[in-house]
Nucleic acid binder design. Structure first.
Lengths: 338, 338
DNA sequence: TTGAAAGCGTTACCAG
DNA sequence: CTGGTAACGCTTTCAA
């Protein structure tokens, strides 16, 4: 079965190719009568526009690229990324864009594919998850011809278009809540200090303590890498060296590890240790005890990212788009306030 | 900065466009001397082939579509899908294909995009995750012009190309192991009976019992939907109505729920209840107790899927490709045999 | 309101 | 081994 082309329809309807094109694309300046007749032929022949040909002629690919650099090694371990991906995919479909997914596992793959991505006319725009200080992938993308948006505040390219959640105020609210419910010594399991999420959440923690005149001790802060296991180790360290009565974890996944560590120490949450996470991923709701956490609108984040990127594609890059989404404190059992 | 084209390079090198094309695509019949010279100009001008134009001329898009129909509502809740996606994405990149991701949340979206996908010349092939008996999306795709491969055994299209793990023998081995370690009454938390994974794992359970002359009782089988919560409810039901001393769960995620239920009943794993899961997802290793489970090679599954699809794309569809990957019993603490 | 024709940047065939 | 040239299927001016 051969592909039906614009020409076939034109011939069938006895009009020119241009006219059919106008009908397909809902352009004005076509008489109702002709439009109807052409539409009939389209239906009759089962015509579908050839998207590649359209791209070539119109110089728009209708594709958006989503890039995870090789610094993301926990794509499937942390539910955050799938959820983000889902939101972005959904929004792309809604906006008649196709989503191309690039998960770079190695630097070689990056080297090979970035040029193709940024100069190959493959995509109209790129969303890249690269907030790390050493994510030089951003510079490579920046040198290309394709507009891009960073998911998260990019530490090494402050002037780039980006979208992020308000990590500082989120963390601040988490810690402020722990103080409010009477906890005296609050430890923190931070994220990696070479990522903006890690840094900003730590900043919020410090801000809250400072504001209430709590001492800020280095020993109270242990760095994790957003994995469950690192949360477990960090919490162990905290429990062994410090008499904390609360822990703020920079992610739910690490909080799960912390919970495990607390139990291993024969302590209980929230009686002995109040625990607050960050993200509000699905497992946190069903955990025992259920986890108090900072909800970030991951799915909305994805949708908004696509909106902003499309705006950049359509309307040109400057001024820089920098969007911050709010968070929300979700109180459950683990903080001991209910 | 204008895009550098084949013509630009040709002019610069003083040869024809055709020759440059041959160099770019590593074709034979180009003298070493000319090849070298052209290559220099390519590097000098920073030429990158325009992939869309190439697609149009060569009638190959270099794109593979990965489709999750709207029946998949737990894309980000169950780590299985992200992991699969990652494997597929990786394999695509390795093979110089681009992966287009389609997550259909609604039937309307399916209606709108399937034609584009199967007749729009958007992709060279499709991998679709749709094994359910009522996944009519398969028929729509089948009616298109694009070769496709089903991830999992498609219940309603047995003659389709598909790739799956050996669910029957995997489940069989899980239950046989429980029998081997001396359990007498083995309950099962099954998957949905309108999916092949649900059905086949149930079949393996029955097979193992029958072979050892264990009675097969309906009351011992409770259906879940692969979510943690359904595992929790199913286990509760099992523990309330039956004196089981072992539970085989058709997925790790449901096993996590079962573990929670067992603890709620003040019973312990593995002393009172031996527990075996299916999948071997990362959290199962760090669970307390760690989970005995059937490991399926999810990542390899994705890689193999791409291999097979590319084979179909290159070499035509018949004969049907039906690939079954093996599984492996991973013995940890929860079955009580160590 | 419609049609003719010139691209878009490649590939692939046919001559030489 | 190399060059000329016709596709590929569509969009987009420009004229009519």
């Amino acid at each position: 079965m051969k592909h039906v082309t614009l020409d076939d329809v034109a011939k069938e309807a006895g009009v020119s190719r241009a006219t059919v094109s106008r009908v397909v694309n809902d352009y004005p300046h076509v008489s109702d009568h002709v439009r109807q007749q052409v539409q009939n032929c389209i239906d009759k022949l089962g015509y579908n526009p050839h998207l590649i040909a359209r791209s070539l002629a119109s110089k728009k690919t209708g594709n958006i690229g989503l890039v995870f650099p090789n610094s993301i090694h926990n794509f499937f371990t942390d539910p955050y990324y799938p959820r983000l991906t889902e939101g972005i995919a959904h929004a792309c479909n809604e906006n008649d864009y196709t989503l191309s997914l690039f998960i770079f596992h190695t630097e070689e793959l990056e080297k090979k594919l970035i040029p193709r991505l940024t100069r190959g006319g493959l995509v109209d725009g790129i969303i890249v998850q690269a907030t790390g200080i050493d994510d030089n992938i951003l510079f490579k993308i920046k040198n290309g011809e394709v507009p891009f948006l960073v998911a998260g505040r990019p530490l090494n390219l402050p002037e780039a278009n980006y979208i992020d959640v308000d990590n500082v105020s989120g963390a601040y609210n988490a810690v402020a809540h722990l103080i409010r419910v009477g906890r005296k010594k609050i430890g923190m399991i931070s994220g990696p200090r070479n990522t903006s999420a890690g840094l900003d959440r730590l900043k919020g923690y410090r801000q809250a303590l400072r504001e209430r005149n709590y001492p800020i001790e280095d020993g109270l802060i242990v760095e994790g890498d957003f994995t469950e296991l690192s949360g477990y180790h960090a919490a162990n360290q905290l429990l062994k060296n410090q008499e904390v009565d609360a822990i703020f974890s920079a992610s739910d996944t690490m909080a799960a590890g912390a919970l495990r560590a607390v139990k291993d120490h024969s302590l209980s949450v929230p009686e002995d240790i109040a625990l607050v996470g960050f993200d509000d991923l699905p497992p946190s709701r069903t955990a025992v005890p259920s986890l108090t956490t900072i909800r970030q609108p991951i799915r909305r984040f994805g949708v908004k990212a696509v909106d902003v990127l499309i705006d950049i594609i359509d309307n040109g890059s400057p001024p820089p788009r920098q969007v911050i989404l709010g968070t929300e404190l979700v109180i459950r059992e683990s903080c001991g306030s209910i």
